[in-house]
Computed example of a mutant assay.
Amino acid sequence: MAFSSTISQGNSFLGFRFEEYMAVKAEKVNKLLDEAIPLCHPLKVNEAMRYSVLVGGKRVRPILCIASCELVGGDESLAMPVACAVEMIHTASLIHDDLPCMDNDDLRRGKPTNHKVFGEGIAVLAGDALLSLAFEHIASNTRNVSPDRVVRVFSELSSAIGSKGLVAGQIMDLESEGKEVSLEELEYIHVHKTAKLLEACVVCGAIMGGGNDTDIERVRKYARCIGLLFQVVDDILDVTKSSAQLGKTAGKDLVSDKVTYPKLMGIAEAKKFANDLMAQSVEELACFDAARAAPLCHLAYYIANREN
């Protein structure tokens, strides 16, 4: 996207190796996800779950969770069960979002969508199973974290994906197709459909890492910025990149007559808005130790400049 960087000292922020950090964390998450969804009876639904979870993806959400845990002084092991759970939840939302009754998409992460491979019925059940497995995984695998913090995490996650979070955004998104939508209404859609879960990833990481209430609210503000940033960039990419570049169907928002940031603001203003959100997100981390904040600062820059 070629947004300007607001990260201190450019990409060398205190010598932080961002690409290496992302690769190491993603490898650990992938290994645990593979173990968490074994091929067992009933085979078909587990195959469908594994297909969508393990097909790829940048693992931005689980890495945000881990980085937030480390930001407040926690070890990655404390956040890893939640990190895997948020990837399960995110994948479940993608499976359901791609269904013919929703966005009706054929391509996800460069491969046929779940319902195209396994059928609509299995896709619905695979998404449902991933949602329930996410909470079971946290409960069964969390160690050395107080029960009250685990309960707080359950509350954050369930709120983010329920009728006051992701579901609310999805409903408004469906109902807005072909209609005139204000900038305020568009922000409501994306805050709930996309940003709420990203916010939960970051907040839950800080909770599991032992962060105090002040720390948690500071990272929440950071997360709200990157959550909206993620969707603004998504809207821009949808009209500037090809399906091959994105790994999903390009231009589908235009075809379905959905309102987007480029449609309301123009591409230039949408890019400026994204750049402002990135800068604001980094500013929210200024009160934390710079070395510990480096991964989250770079993640904001990464989200702003991603190509798919």
Rank of each mutant, 00 (worst) to 15 (best):
L14R: 11
N305S: 11
A92E: 03
K28L: 11
F273I: 15
L296W: 04
N212F: 02
C297P: 08
E70I: 12
G266Q: 07
K164C: 12
R109H: 07
D257G: 04
G110H: 08
K258C: 03
E27I: 05
D34V: 11
V232T: 06
V202K: 06
A304W: 11
K272F: 15
E180V: 15
R143Y: 11
A250L: 05
R218H: 13
K28N: 12
E156P: 08
V86P: 00
V117E: 01
G211W: 05
T214D: 14
V82I: 15
C101D: 12
I236L: 06
G266N: 04
L254N: 09
A48F: 06
A244N: 14
V259Y: 08
D105V: 05
Y21C: 12
F154Y: 12
L237F: 10
D103I: 00
A293S: 15
E27V: 06
V55Y: 15
L32F: 13
S146M: 12
L157D: 03
S93I: 02
E156M: 08
A290C: 10
I138T: 01
S176M: 12
I138V: 05
H96A: 02
D289H: 05
R149Q: 10
A92L: 07
A92Y: 13
L198Q: 03
R59Q: 04
G162S: 02
N11V: 12
G15D: 06
N11Y: 12
S8T: 13
N46T: 13
D128H: 02
G73K: 03
V233D: 00
E180F: 13
E87W: 01
T214Y: 14
D97Q: 01
A300M: 11
D97Y: 00
A2D: 12
S77W: 09
F16S: 02
S8I: 14
H137P: 10
E76M: 10
Q245W: 10
L186D: 00
S4V: 10
H90L: 04
G119I: 07
K31V: 09
P262H: 01
V82S: 14
A26K: 03
T260Q: 06
A168V: 13
V45K: 04
L94K: 00
F118V: 02
K193A: 02
G210S: 04
A83Y: 01
S158Y: 01
E19V: 10
M22Q: 07
T91Y: 00
I171A: 11
A300C: 11
A279P: 08
V203F: 05
G74E: 01
G205F: 02
S242P: 10
Y302F: 13
A200D: 00
L237I: 10
I95W: 01
T260F: 04
G73A: 02
I138W: 01
L39W: 11
M102F: 02
V255E: 11
V150N: 08
G73L: 02
L130C: 03
S159L: 07
G165M: 00
E156L: 09
E184D: 10
K252P: 08
F154T: 04
A126W: 06
A223L: 10
R218T: 12
I207F: 05
E284T: 15
L133W: 04
E184S: 09
N275T: 15
L186V: 00
K196F: 07
L157P: 03
M172G: 13
M80K: 07
T240P: 09
N144M: 10
A200I: 01
R61Y: 02
A36P: 07
F18Q: 11
L131S: 06
Q170P: 03
